[in-house]
Computed example of a mutant assay.
Amino acid sequence: MWIATETCALGPYQPDLVETYWRWEQDPGLLVGYGRQSPQTLEARTEGMAAQLRGSNIRFTVYDTTKDTPVPVGVTTLLPDDSVRTAEYIVMLGPEARGRGLGTQATRLTLDYAFHITNLRMVWLKVLAPNTAGIHAYERAGFQRAGTLRQAGYWLGEVCDEVLMDALATDFTGPSAIKNLLRG
């Protein structure tokens, strides 16, 4: 694991976890949250992972560190646009990890990495408006609402808005796992 809090850590995106990642992605709660209507086969996911590992996106496996042995519970991703020093943020948590604050911690650790290692100036995301739990978790991690894409998504088969949120490096305050490592 690379960076951690007391309850959560980020580690490498691992090819040997492809079946676990795929299982999370097939969860109906995740399909609704992403607005995607169809599941994917394990074979297609395995092929997609090979391309992801060759790409320039920054991916982490999220670990729950509250147990004796850290357990993988999700993935965070930064999709950088190097020309403007920004990135889109995506998080995926398995059903067993939701509602425990791990998403907020993983998001905060990913922002810490984005601002203190990758030197991004801004990270943004889109979240479906009915996903109020997600919006609140993003706000606790440091994101702010930046706008709305009207009727841009689907939630439980109904058209809905997408909320745009962003986090700026200049606003990223509070404890930093990266800075603590360097001071260590």
Rank of each mutant, 00 (worst) to 15 (best):
L125T: 12
N119I: 01
G29Y: 08
R54N: 07
A137I: 11
L156W: 08
T65Y: 00
L31K: 12
G153F: 15
L168M: 08
V32K: 12
F115S: 03
I178A: 00
T41K: 10
L168E: 01
A97D: 02
A87Q: 04
D64T: 06
E25K: 11
Q151S: 12
G157W: 15
E158Y: 08
L102Y: 15
I117F: 01
Y113R: 01
Q37V: 06
A133H: 09
N57V: 07
P130F: 15
M122T: 04
T86M: 10
Y63T: 04
V62F: 10
N180A: 14
L120S: 01
A44L: 14
N119G: 03
L128N: 06
F143V: 06
L102D: 02
T76Y: 14
G94M: 13
Y63A: 02
D68C: 00
E19K: 13
S38F: 14
T5Q: 02
R108F: 14
L30G: 00
W124N: 02
L168P: 00
A87F: 02
D161C: 08
N119D: 05
E158D: 03
G174K: 12
G35L: 11
R98T: 09
G157M: 11
L93G: 05
L120R: 05
Y34A: 06
K126S: 03
D166K: 13
Q151H: 15
T77H: 00
Q144Y: 12
L156Q: 13
T66G: 04
P12E: 05
E19D: 06
G33C: 02
I117C: 05
V163P: 03
T20G: 00
E6D: 09
Q105L: 07
T61Y: 14
A9W: 04
T86I: 12
R145A: 06
P15Q: 11
T173C: 07
T66P: 00
D16Q: 08
S38E: 12
T76D: 02
G35F: 15
G184A: 07
N131T: 03
G94T: 11
R36K: 13
T170A: 14
E158C: 05
Q105A: 13
G147R: 05
G94P: 07
R98V: 09
G103D: 05
V18L: 03
E88G: 08
L53F: 13
E47C: 02
S56K: 15
A50F: 13
D27N: 08
S56G: 08
R85K: 12
L78D: 03
